[in-house]
């Protein structure tokens, strides 16, 4: 399990990243945390001819909340995001999800942008991005663009990023409502494994307890995370009682296209997606209610 030969360059600016990728003829690959890329290279499932190391690019580090969004720079370590008071305060859903991402040792190297760029269909950070409708910023030599999460993730390990593009930032919308609650549920065979199915939910409640906004997403049940807004429409204006939640969750199976694998069947994933979505919604409701009471 040794990687095929490659060339290596360590850069300090995004401009250099773009130049390096530009010169690699589509065979270059960015390495940030390497927690997914390196094993793929070890198995020779990935064999870039050039690795562009962005760990020293300071403009790709950091977390800020501005303009109604939490902006996480691509090379921000998952451990840093998990420990960030800013993430906890503005985007608790991401903080909740982050606890399910790998293990402490992989979070110490793994980055938020790396997880997005690899687009593992069962990864937690892409699920949060899809659920909340995050925007992904990508740059190439002469240009930059913003990509909606839903369009960014194209399939298992496939994204809208071009081979010479550098993912620079993920912008998670921060809901301005007063009483926002979130929930994240996951089933994996062992804690720390990739999700068999994961569900993310975020709700906003009016002072009278009625739901004014809701987002639900499912990961692990198909080629990419799925925003389940069509199933959640019936939740608006309700008090999110259990029956309403269960009915909405029951519609999720129709939105996902899971497959069989060694860990679970497609049927399992459909049933678990509904059950976990209901749980995530209940947690979100309770979380929002706590905030309303506080």
């Amino acid at each position: 399990m040794k990687a095929a030969p490659f060339d290596y360059v360590r850069v300090t600016t995004v401009a250099e990243v773009c130049r390096a990728l530009d010169g690699a003829g589509g065979e270059g690959k960015i390495i940030a945390g390497g927690q997914t890329l390196v094993p793929m290279m070890a198995m020779r499932l990935a064999r870039p001819t050039l690795l562009v190391d962005i760990n020293d690019v300071s403009e790709l580090q950091g977390i800020a909340a501005t303009g109604g969004a939490l902006k996480v720079k691509a090379c921000t370590r998952q451990a840093a995001a998990l420990a960030s008071p800013l993430v906890a305060a503005t985007l608790p859903l991401l903080a909740r999800a982050m606890r399910w991402v790998g293990h402490g040792q992989t979070r110490n190297r793994g980055t938020v942008g790396g997880s997005i760029a690899h687009a593992d269909p069962s990864a937690e950070i892409p699920l949060v991005a899809v659920t909340l409708g995050a925007t992904i910023e990508a740059r190439r030599s002469a240009s930059a663009r913003l990509i909606e999460a839903d369009a960014f993730f194209e399939g298992p390990m496939m994204t809208a990023l071009a081979a010479d593009e550098c993912l620079t930032e993920v912008r998670f919308p921060v809901w301005p409502e007063a009483h926002v609650g979130s929930g994240f549920e996951e089933v994996s065979a062992r804690r720390g494994d990739f999700a068999i199915v994961a569900a993310a939910a975020q709700v906003a409640l009016a002072p009278d307890g009625r739901c004014t906004r809701v987002a639900v997403g499912i990961g692990g049940a198909g080629g990419r995370a799925v925003n389940c807004a069509p199933a959640a429409g019936s939740l608006f204006g309700t008090r999110l009682d259990d029956a309403t939640i269960d009915a909405a969750a029951g519609r999720i199976a129709a939105l996902i296209e899971p497959q069989d694998d060694i860990h679970a069947t497609a049927d399992y994933r459909r049933r678990a997606a509904a059950a976990l979505a209901a749980r995530a919604l209940r947690s979100a409701r309770a979380d929002a209610a706590t905030k309303a009471a506080a």
Partner: peptide
């Protein structure tokens, strides 16, 4: 050598990491 077992753990700049998931040049 694929980042699951942790036998290769080392402390890197003060934090534990898996040394099979990094290249020495890094």
């Amino acid at each position: 050598e694929h980042g699951v077992c942790g036998a290769c753990s080392v402390i890197f700049d003060g934090k534990p990491i898996r040394s099979c998931l990094m290249f020495a040049v890094q």
